[in-house]
Design a protein around this nucleic acid. Structure first.
Lengths: 249, 249
DNA sequence: GAGTGGTCTAGACCACCCA
DNA sequence: GGGTGGTCTAGACCACTCA
């Protein structure tokens, strides 16, 4: 029979039938999702983990390989294995998908326009998998380069998880939102689902992007998922002059 | 000093300083890229490979893990390790990115309109990294669902590599193009770079999509890369009614 | 030089597929 | 039942980092 990892409190005594390295991986993942292990922290050494969990080093390595591949952990030869911190540079490099038509990368700064707590629209409710009476925080912001507004965004997050999110309208946003999510609310964005379509610019959009009402613009809808694959943000980005990039494999 | 793998003909006797598993991985990759190993074939067993290469099974596994993660190989417990065949279903699932606005997947059939051999445009030449006098094959096709044309495509491939590509205008295309590339020309698509932007529909596009000239439509430009990361296709897809999907991580 | 991750080995046992 | 991949071990040696 397959062994199971020692747990601090073993709720059930059912014999675990999953491979040890998966159990170890999920245990690490859980500790990261729950904040026991924080971004920036180093894991115990492989040797230490192996003796702690009562498994061999090879199995520890296999457990961490997955998380390294997913970008959650990062190995540093001679130093240790770190939970990847969500720095602004990293978040930009990883999740930012806009570029100029000529291929040069856009360097956008953000400016928050409004911040409201309200009931979600039908789509927002569905995209965030919210319950009947859940509220959302809605942010609107513009993103500019050289004083030219290139993107208008409406960002929607569940109030329950993001109550501690502290940002104020009217100020420039120096850090990436995803970094703030992590630092202020302990929510890490692991993956995203983007949809790109043509949209007739709503009033707020045409005003900020300085185009005629009714102009057809590019709309990117994004669901951001947490470590536990729950949707934690629904974002809509409208742009007229930028293109959207995507690399597969 | 680090060992090196035995090679049938060792061009240089320089001592190989890369890890054995990387040498083994690249050796397999090369054999697949060169057609020595064909999609659908099974690799020798891990045991066999290990003794052939004079390395241990663990190292063989590590060599193949990369290729499995990239979708080039597929392990089948109890049967063997197969070079993934590019079936139509697989190609559709992997590279197809269009959906209806309501989220339902579009089931498109293709119909080739024209096939021409000509000099590439400046952009095509650059995107395909072509030399001065290289020619390209240009395909135009429409993709429809229930007799409604939803996408117009202009597809451009280097004539040198795709001379054996045999498809004729006017016929429905039952197989995915990428499957034909593989079967007829031995070229496998491994990865893609997509760019999505708004475009003013060119004449051919507005005619086929049945919209006014000058309508703003969605344009997806795609570069497809081979196993060896060379660009082998540049494709432009125009659509009015579909949205583009992208999953990150 | 002590401690970390990176590579590699040789072998055990299991789970699965197929004849 | 023979062959395949899947998991796991225990240990060797190397390469890198940092004090």
């Amino acid at each position: 029979m397959r062994r199971s990892l020692p747990e601090p409190v073993q709720a059930q005594t059912t014999l675990e039938s999953r491979p040890l390295y998966l159990q170890a991986r999920d245990s690490l993942m859980r500790q990261i999702a729950e904040g026991v292990l924080q971004p920036g922290d180093f894991l115990p050494s492989e040797q230490q983990l192996a003796t702690d969990l009562g498994i061999s080093i090879g199995t520890v390595r296999k457990a961490t390989e997955d998380l390294v591949a997913q970008g959650i952990l990062e190995r540093q030869h001679g130093r240790g294995t770190q939970i990847v911190p969500h720095t602004s540079d990293r978040a930009r490099f990883r999740f930012f998908r806009f570029a100029h038509p000529d291929g040069t990368t856009a360097r956008l700064t953000g400016r928050l326009l409004t911040r409201k707590i309200q009931s979600p629209s039908k789509e927002e409710q569905q995209r965030l998998a919210l319950g009947k009476n859940d509220q959302v925080i809605v942010l609107s912001r513009i993103r500019s380069e050289d004083q030219v507004t290139l993107v208008y965004e409406r960002i929607c997050v569940p109030e329950k998880k993001f109550a501690r999110l502290s940002i104020e309208p009217g100020r420039d946003m120096l850090e990436e939102l995803y970094v703030l999510y992590q630092k202020q609310c302990g929510e890490m964005v692991r993956s995203t689902i983007d949809e790109v379509q043509i949209d007739v610019a709503p009033a707020a959009v045409s005003k900020e992007l300085q185009c005629d009402a009714g102009t057809r613009v590019l709309l990117v809808k994004r669901q951001a998922l947490s470590l536990t694959k729950e949707p934690i943000e629904f974002r809509q980005s409208w742009t007229l002059k930028l293109k959207y990039m995507s690399y597969l494999e």
